[in-house]
């Protein structure tokens, strides 16, 4: 039984204009995606900016209300929940944000920030809260004596640790990591990745790891989904996806990652043009306008995500 099951999730943002807020069209940020996340597993979600990966993360938590679909978390359909029930579920489904600067309230000190989820959900004394906060700070590698400092007194990496401590405060089952390391320096990035990996082992956490950096995603994930224009192009185990990518987009994406080894000279598949607007996605396969292996059928018929064997799912007419 999967911990989190997302089924045909859609989020369309209406484009309104004018005095009477006429809806002119829709941005199909997420256009029908499905996946599952098991206990203790990490699912990587990669894609370029504008592919909808962040919207997926926020829709699951209903920080953005999805347009359609089902999200089953721990045997509860999140989209059916009332405000108050949802508030309670959020104790066990948490999120870590990309920007360690904007994700912490500048007017609150570390103690208040980490204590917020505890105060929201548990009726415990001030002393107990303080103890728990100190424990959490230690757990993520912060000095508990810094409890009354303000976010601006910390470096980016330390701030990200504060965000992680806040997410851990209520012993969640799953954490949505929305680009948790992309704003950090290289040496700090490794610290945070290691911290996330260690916490996962200790607490049997599940991660939905959203990122644009393919090397980071490969490193931390058990399975990886590649998104393009609001859909999943390919989903497979990390090894399978990186060694044997089937979708032409995944191949181009992987070949574009610069390898930190000057001895290796690969032939790159340089895609032409830019990602089309999600307001007006291309007909058929949404990648066909840039696909180096485009066939006639690609512009006419939409491919469906199908199993190419061994849990390697791909959405392409070539397979």
């Amino acid at each position: 039984m999967a911990l989190l099951e997302v089924n045909n999730l859609k989020k369309y943002f209406p484009i309104k204009k004018g005095v009477f807020s006429r809806t002119l069209g829709q941005v199909r940020a997420v256009d029908g995606i499905s996946f599952t996340l098991k206990r203790g597993e990490t699912l990587g979600l990669v894609g370029e900016s504008g592919c909808g990966k962040t919207t997926v993360g926020r829709s699951i938590l209903r920080l953005i209300e999805p347009t359609a679909g089902q999200i089953t978390f721990n045997n509860q359909n999140l989209l059916d929940l009332e405000r108050e029930e949802l508030r309670k579920v959020r104790a066990s489904l948490q999120i870590i944000f990309q920007d360690p600067f904007s994700s912490l309230d500048p007017r609150m000190n570390v103690g208040q920030i980490i204590a917020e989820p505890i105060r929201n959900h548990l009726k415990i004394s001030r002393k107990e809260i303080r103890e728990r906060v100190a424990y959490l700070m230690e757990r993520v590698g912060l000095h508990p004596e810094h409890i009354s400092r303000y976010p601006h007194e910390f470096s980016g990496g330390q701030r990200q640790r504060i965000g992680i401590a806040r997410a851990l405060a209520l012993n969640p089952l799953a954490i949505i990591c929305d680009e948790p390391v992309s704003a950090l320096d290289v040496s700090i990035q490794a610290q945070v990745i290691n911290l996330l990996a260690r916490l996962q082992e200790q607490m049997n956490l599940s991660y939905l790891f959203i990122a644009h950096d393919l090397s980071v995603v490969e490193h931390i994930s058990d399975r990886v989904a590649v998104m393009y224009l609001g859909r999943i192009a390919e989903l497979a185990s990390d090894q399978e996806l990186y060694q044997n990518p089937l979708h032409p987009y995944s191949r181009a994406l992987l070949s574009a990652v610069p390898i930190p080894d000057p001895e290796i000279r690969r032939k790159k598949i340089v895609l032409q043009g830019d990602v089309p607007s999600p307001m007006d996605p291309p007909s058929g396969c949404s990648f066909h306008t840039r696909c180096p292996e485009c066939k006639e059928i690609c512009s006419q018929e939409e491919p469906i995500l199908k199993d190419a064997g061994d849990g390697h799912w791909v959405s392409c007419h070539l397979w």
């Binding site: 700090i188 992987l254 080894d261």
Partner: peptide
């Protein structure tokens, strides 16, 4: 050396495990 060790490289996980080499402390 630390910088080079701390970046994840595709395909290297199998050999080195999930831990990346860390440079402790802050800039």
């Amino acid at each position: 050396q630390g910088l080079l060790g701390s970046i994840p490289v595709i395909g290297r996980k199998r050999q080195t495990g999930r831990r990346l080499q860390e440079i402790p402390g802050i800039v």
